[in-house]
Amino acid sequence: MTGADPIEGLRLDRVSRRFGTTAALRDVSFHVPPCALAVIVGPSGCGKSTALRTVAGFESPDAGRVLLDGLDVTRVPPERRSAAMVFQHYALFPNLDVAGNVAYGPRVQGVEAAPRATLVREMLELVGLAGLDLRRPHELSGGQQQRVALARALAARPKLLLLDEPLSNVDPSLRRDTRTRLRTLHEARGVTTLWVTHDREEALAVADIVIVMRAGEVVQSGSPREVCESPATTFVAEFLLDANVLPPSAAKAFLSLATDEVVAARPDHVGLERIADDSAPLRVVTVAYGPVRTEVVCEGVLAASGETFRVRSHVDTDALPPGLRAGAPVRAFVRPADLLRFRR
């Protein structure tokens, strides 16, 4: 490894990668401090997996540098980066049992048998799989396989842990528990971690740092709170907060707001009032009941341009206005303090 850099942890410095005519990564730069958990989040095809594979060493960037603990590892092969990866489908070795899988990293690193066995036991206890050492991967549930993959990665004692959509194959009912467990494990082990997901709720729940990507570029990065309170673009507001984004004309027509800026409002900040006036600009399209909040989607047509806009509101189910059903005329409102504003 060459090229010492004063910044520790993981740093990507203007990394670009093309596949044919498609730019998968464009000048991607971000920094993950030591022991932090960073999550790259974005829609399908935004380049987040390419970024992860570039950090792992499975993709070579066309330009830019990857630095790990201050050392330039851009051209270092994957096995010498100390960046262990947990794959989306776990990639457990079918010819090895659970213990063999977990012991794989220490074994190829030349760790003696006795300390290796201790390490395997410790890791299996850590992920709650003690006693399953002799099971084969196909004898495990999806959640257990995921924990073996995690134990295997941690047993390699990496400087950097890479998680590729780690919850996408976990049963939806177990996802919340699993992500809490992963976050707890991260805090216990303190390994610098880069996690990739397309799920915004997952990203905001576990991350110290959220890195939002779109079309091969980093759009914004920061703590979940920073990103949510001050989204840098309307895309971040829409993607991360599910916000209603409206141009000034629509804001005036549907929210009665006089503004020359593009505005965005989170659905839980949009209030609705059932009105009797049939000439109301918005009408309810769907009402999706939820035990805590009910989602109401309204639609309106802008008279000047003929454009159709939708406004989504998450209303307290207990305070749901009476008579709110499909076709009902409504008025929507947002407190000015809750509005996010963007230059046109």
Binding site: A56, G57, F58, P77, P78, E79, R80, R81, S82, A83, A84, M85, F87, Q88, H89, A91, L92, F93, N95, Y104, G105, V108, Q109, R152, A153, A156, L162
Partner: peptide, 20 residues
């Protein structure tokens, strides 16, 4: 993903081929 998994755990291509 098997070979990338082995390599991310420290195995060289030859070791990954032999062991996985």
């Amino acid at each position: 993903d098997l070979v990338p998994a082995a390599r991310s755990l420290g195995a060289t291509p030859a070791i990954a081929f032999r062991t996985v």
